[in-house]
Amino acid sequence: MFFHWLEKNPFYFALMISVVISFAGLLEIVPNFAQAARPLSTEKPKTVLELAGKNLYVKDNCIACHSQMIRPFKSETDRYGKYSLSGEYAYDRPFLWGSKRTGPDLHRVGNYRTTDWHENHMRDPKAMVPGSIMPAYKHMFTNVADIESAYAEAVTVKNAFFTPYGPEFKRTRAAWEAHRPKVIADAKKIADDMKDEDVKKAVANGEVPEIVAMIAYLNSLK
């Protein structure tokens, strides 16, 4: 009965065909995808300071000009290092592959650039790379990074996606206050390698300028 009805209704017939074919597709795609999207065993979730930097990366739209995806071609690995694996993005929410390379790829920039280079470059890209068309990001030296939201993000992805943050990541103000000195300590490590006195002073006062979070994030890209 059902087939007679189906044969006379082309729309529902087409719909059923798509369901059947999609089901086969699901069986092939989903298990492979689930396997490849598992985090690499060496992969650690980003620290709160690095997460704050990642949020700045999103906010200032670095992805418009920079990719984070090294393809397995010799020409790319010669310049940027080892090709990217999908497991490396497992804790990235959202992942920041990008699809446009006006500037270079940044997926392993932490391997071949240092804190002081980023400091000079963010203030005046042309001073480091004469032909560069990257704009200067001077505001990052004075704006303060939102580390509290970054902590909230860490707690959220821990609860929602089981990202392996430690048991001290809790949804209470006390937990955040207890974690805050750790973030400042991470920031101080970065600021120690920097030359800007105002940035050093701000970190000593318990504030994290955006540039520090940004550099922490860029250094974590390895």
């Binding site: 010669d78 290092g81 080892k82 391997n111 071949y112 650039r113 240092t114 804190t115 002081d116 280079w117 390698d193």
Partner: peptide
């Protein structure tokens, strides 16, 4: 004293 240079071992 100028700053740090990373290793280029793998490159």
């Amino acid at each position: 004293i100028i700053g740090a240079m990373p290793s280029f071992k793998t490159m």
